[in-house]
Amino acid sequence: MQLISDGAIFATGSDACGGLRLRIHRLWENQNLEDAPSAVLKHLGELKRPYLSKFEEKLLGFLEQEYGIVD
């Protein structure tokens, strides 16, 4: 499960070194990031709950695919 805590993004399990934070950071660095994806990333980083919903996880995955940020 991907966790978010106190406005900073963290991950649990095998991705405990901030996998979600890294995923969002990679997208933020993209020079071609449009306004809508930028707003989505901002929202995901500001969530007050400690996890991403299935939809939010799919949305982040979609953005990674669209911008070629896939491991």
Rank of each mutant, 00 (worst) to 15 (best):
E29I: 04
W28E: 13
A11E: 15
D71N: 08
E56T: 02
L47Y: 02
F55W: 02
N30K: 15
L63Y: 07
E46Y: 01
L22S: 12
D35M: 10
Q31T: 12
Q31V: 10
F10P: 00
L20E: 01
L60P: 01
C17M: 12
S5V: 15
Q65G: 02
H25D: 14
E34F: 04
L3S: 12
L52V: 02
Q31R: 15
E66W: 03
L33V: 06
A8R: 14
R49Q: 11
E34S: 14
L41A: 10
E64M: 14
L33Y: 05
S38C: 12
S38Y: 09
L52D: 01
L60F: 03
K54D: 03
H43S: 09
L3T: 13
F10H: 14
G61Q: 01
D71F: 06
G45P: 02
L60H: 03
R26H: 13
E29L: 15
L44G: 07
L44Q: 05
K48G: 15
K58C: 00
G19W: 07
P50S: 13
D71L: 08
S38K: 14
I9A: 15
A8W: 07
N32L: 13
P50C: 07
R21Q: 09
L44V: 06
F62L: 12
F55K: 09
F62W: 07
V40E: 13
G18M: 05
R49V: 11
A39F: 04
S53M: 04
Q31A: 15
N30D: 15
E46N: 11
L52N: 02
T12K: 12
D35G: 00
G61T: 00
L20C: 06
H43E: 06
E66C: 05
N32P: 00
F10E: 13
D15K: 05
I9C: 15
D15Y: 04
S53P: 00
I24Y: 06
D15Q: 06
A36H: 12
G68S: 06
Y51C: 03
L27Y: 10
I4A: 13
H43I: 01
N32H: 14
D6E: 15
L27I: 08
I69K: 14
R26N: 14
L27T: 09
G45E: 02
D71S: 08
L47D: 02
W28H: 10
Y67K: 04
Q31P: 12
I9W: 08
I4H: 09
P50H: 09
H43Q: 08
G7H: 03
E34N: 07
K48F: 00
V70A: 09
L47G: 03
Q65A: 10
L41F: 07
S5G: 03
S38M: 11
E64S: 12
E29K: 13
G19D: 09
F10G: 06
F10N: 08
D71K: 08
L27A: 11
W28V: 08
T12R: 14
D71H: 07
M1K: 07
L22Y: 10
E64G: 05
A36L: 13
D15P: 01
G19P: 06
A8F: 10
W28L: 12
S14N: 04
V40R: 11
F55D: 06
E57G: 01
L22H: 12
G45R: 03
L52Y: 02
